Amino acid sequence: MPLEEHYSLKKHNTFGVEACARYFAPIRQMEELEELLIADLWKSMPTLVLGEGSNILFTRDVDGLVLKNEIKGIAVIRETADEVWLKVGGGENWHRFVMFCVGNQYAGVENLALIPGSVGASPVQNIGAYGVEVKEVIEKVVAWHLETHELLHFSNADCAFGYRDSVFKHAYQGRLMIVWVVFRLSKHPVFHTEYAALREELERMGVKTLSLKAISEAVIRIRTRKLPDPAKIGNAGSFFKNPQIPLAQYQALKQQFPDLPSFPVHADSVKIPAAWLIEQCGWKGYREGDAGVHSQQALVLVNYGKATGKQILDLSERIRQSVHERFGVWLEREVNVW
């Protein structure tokens, strides 16, 4: 197993910002992880687990060990006439996994096509799009505890999933590497087309009969059109979560801002789009040096070339402050900051 010193992380984060790891190790098998971490050297050193770097903003170097999750593999471990269980390596590319499922007619993740990142990161964020969250298809998460050197098994309930949230972002933050995820998928699709943008795209495509392939293709087209390609312009997708606010607060804001969009969550709470709030504050298309807000999607902060992580973070804080001043709502980052 190669262990690199003073290793550049620029190509390992989709913002494309410069950062250096004191030590860097790609992990392709769990046994490599066990063998590496047994050394006393790492016990007093910060450790960062990195997937595809699509949800992290580096504002400083990592004066410690970076473990790059490259554990691969997709295997059928159980199957019935109606369902299939897949054991998937945490280092698998998420979109490739979705396309594998679509190609084999395994339903449940087609609405999550083209989300950047790895399979191992999907339960951490409880990734979601177009009316579907990954928690709906996760049966189990298997993770290696970096401190106790134990293999832990988390049921769906153990994961404590919430909106872009899970137990892995709280009690276990920075303490685990997710080595496998077990997904329970259906052979009888139930199509989720509640979102108007998805229905409109399917109409534009001339789709008469819904299929997993049609849904995934529509999602890919929408995301390609709306979101910048990290290979061309540095970004980590949505930088902020859509805030969920009490119904009474929403009703008061609606009186002041009649065009305020919303999505019902519960009887007493409403979700409002962060992109709309940011755009109303005049940030869409804003640029300061090489740090900016994307011209087509106000929820996406971008690196036009040589922005530092701190410059992008500072811009995000100014955006949060301006949204709070105007709407009384604090935006919460979706992107992890190191």
Rank of each mutant, 00 (worst) to 15 (best):
A274D: 09
N104D: 08
S295E: 05
K169E: 01
D63E: 13
Q297N: 09
G285E: 07
V329S: 08
I56R: 07
E139G: 14
M99G: 14
G131W: 00
K254E: 14
Y163T: 03
V181L: 05
V134W: 05
F183C: 11
E52N: 14
A291F: 00
A75W: 00
Q251H: 13
A129C: 02
V84M: 00
V207T: 08
K11C: 06
V329Q: 04
N336S: 13
E332F: 05
G51S: 06
F154M: 04
V141A: 15
A157K: 15
F24A: 13
Y286C: 01
V167K: 05
V337Y: 09
L176V: 02
K208V: 09
R225E: 06
S118R: 02
R333F: 10
P2K: 14
G131K: 04
V66I: 04
G328R: 10
L227A: 08
V182D: 08
Q173S: 12
I71Y: 11
V102Q: 13
L67K: 10
C159Y: 06
R175F: 03
Q297F: 00
G16H: 06
G90Y: 04
M30N: 10
V265P: 02
S322V: 01
G89V: 06
L37S: 12
T308E: 00
A218G: 05
T209R: 05
K284C: 08
N156Y: 10
Q296V: 00
V270E: 13
N126W: 02
E35L: 14
P2V: 15
L299V: 03
V137P: 06
L253T: 09
K68M: 03
W283H: 11
F24N: 12
H324G: 15
H149D: 01
A25C: 15
F327G: 00
A307G: 01
K226F: 06
Y7H: 13
Q251S: 12
A307L: 01
L67P: 10
E52I: 01
A214M: 02
E5L: 03
A274Y: 13
I38S: 15
V337T: 14
G289T: 02
E217Q: 12
A298C: 02
F58P: 02
L331M: 08
F327M: 02
E332W: 04
V119N: 09
A275M: 04
G206K: 01
L227S: 10
L114R: 15
E70A: 11
R204F: 03
I74D: 08
I278L: 12
E334K: 11
P116D: 13
P26S: 10
E150L: 10
I233C: 14
V142M: 11
P26I: 03
W283R: 02
H12T: 00
L57T: 07
Y286N: 03
A252H: 14
R22V: 08
L151E: 14
I272H: 03
G89S: 04
